[in-house]
Design a protein around this nucleic acid. Structure first.
Lengths: 76, 76
DNA sequence: GTGTAGACTCCTGTCGACT
DNA sequence: AAGTCGACAGGAGTCTACA
């Protein structure tokens, strides 16, 4: 398939920013979401490509709307 | 992992709605996105769990922001 | 035009261990 | 606390074909 752009990096940076705002460590956050710590690490660094179900649990873990994780919006 | 809810179904219904608004058939839309037609069919019916990169190409194919595809927002 | 099924490749998501 | 590696099962994404 044809990967549009650096969506993963943008998403990851956004996730990291929101997680830090909530004052959680990667590990504490991963536990709260029921996800693996190393996987969350990969997502934040843009080397992983999570599914929308994972996006859902991440948003829930942060206590924010899903849209908050995508508020960088489709780059060229 | 722990699937939060019917995110896939909500996303799929939303995608279908936006696609129909744009007047495209599943096939024409899939071609425009560079995705497989049967896969788009699966996404719209909520039986598939796309990655955020696929979400990006779907949004681009529709000419909308990624947020538009998630404007149902995290169900309980 | 759409839904489904089967078969296939490659990656998502989990885990343990070391830095 | 966070990055990275190797290994693994299961699922994402493609394709062909029929209803």
């Amino acid at each position: 398939m044809k990967t549009t752009s650096g969506i993963r990096s943008l998403f990851g940076a956004n996730l990291k920013r929101l997680r830090l705002q909530s004052g959680l460590s990667q590990e504490a956050f991963a536990d709260k979401c029921g996800l693996d710590r190393t996987y969350v690490s990969g997502i934040e660094r843009g080397v992983r490509n999570p599914t929308i179900e994972v996006v859902g649990v991440l948003a829930k873990g942060l206590g924010v709307a899903i849209n908050a994780l995508f508020d960088f919006d489709s780059p060229p």
